[in-house]
């Protein structure tokens, strides 16, 4: 408990560094590009347009307002995907710094996930735009998306910490993870309707795919305008904290050995 309080204190002490790192990531991403922040909105919009055209011909009959359906899944999955991919190399990439000065190492991983979250919030502008254009109904439920975003943030933090520490020892983790996320994407109902997959696979997805919990909740709130069920909400929170626990534990356990491998 004492240790926990000390860790929290040191995190608070370094909060400005976290902010600087996040600002750096966001700034560098858009520096010297003509449209700047507009890319955050434009990029998902363009991808969505392409995917809408392709997939709406395949699933036309089952899904109403396909662009919003697709978008609600894709934005969330993208946040998880890009932020954890960035987080993987967060420790190995900051090697030069970690060798020279004492900084809590997890700061770099947390910063990557947090800048992913900032990007996600930017791209929500695109979703809003699509919802207005397609005349999707709005309701107060929409605002609760922030809870889901928080759950997913915690989940990504845990996953990012776990991957970052593993990547210090085994550099090929990032290539393996590439394959994992591709499979993961197809196993998450992003561009196909949930009903279109066979029952056994659906059962598996509903119980073991964390992204299903988050995409499901997010869709309930933003696309169907209802509250998500208690089961999926609980699953979302539980997985988030479980992953955060695993990530933190594995990271703290191995962080003293990082210096010998970077």
């Amino acid at each position: 408990m004492d240790l926990f309080i000390r860790r929290l204190k040191s995190f608070w002490y370094y909060k400005d560094l976290l902010k600087q790192l996040v600002v750096r990531d966001v700034k560098l991403k858009y520096r010297r590009s003509f449209l700047g922040y507009v890319w955050s909105v434009l990029n998902p919009l363009l991808i969505m347009t392409v995917m809408s055209i392709v997939f709406s011909t395949m699933f036309k009959k089952n899904i109403e307002n396909f662009p919003v359906y697709l978008f609600t899944g894709q934005l969330l999955f993208n946040f998880m995907n890009t932020s954890t991919h960035q987080a993987i190399s967060s420790i190995t990439g900051s090697g030069a710094l970690l060798k020279k000065a004492y900084v809590p190492k997890y700061i770099f991983t947390v910063a990557k996930i947090t800048s992913g979250l900032v990007d996600f919030f930017f791209s929500l502008g695109a979703l809003l735009l699509v919802m207005i254009v397609t005349r999707a109904p709005f309701s107060w439920h929409n605002l609760l998306f922030i809870v889901v975003a928080f759950q997913l943030y915690l989940f990504c933090l845990g996953l990012g910490l776990f991957l970052a520490q593993a990547n210090v020892f085994f550099r090929d983790i990032q290539y393996i993870y590439n394959a994992v996320t591709t499979a993961w994407m197809y196993l998450t109902p992003i561009f196909y309707p949930v009903e279109s997959i066979n029952e056994r696979l659906l059962w598996f997805i509903k119980h073991f795919n964390p992204m299903y919990f988050y995409v499901g909740q997010f869709r309930d709130l933003v696309y169907y305008n209802t509250l998500p069920g208690p089961k999926i909400t609980f699953a979302g929170w539980a997985t988030a904290f479980l992953m955060l626990g695993i990530g933190t534990w594995s990271f703290l356990r191995s962080q003293d050995r990082f210096i010998l491998y970077i």
């Binding site: 002490y13 400005d16 600087q20 750096r24 700034k27 520096r31 060798k99």
Partner: peptide, 25 residues
């Protein structure tokens, strides 16, 4: 200068590096 990020300006790096050393903004 180990903590400097080559793509950032000197101004930004002063803040970043200061925070690495544990100072507040």
């Amino acid at each position: 200068g180990a903590g400097f990020d080559g793509n950032m300006t000197a101004r930004e790096n002063i803040y970043l590096n200061g925070c690495v050393l544990g100072h507040t903004e």
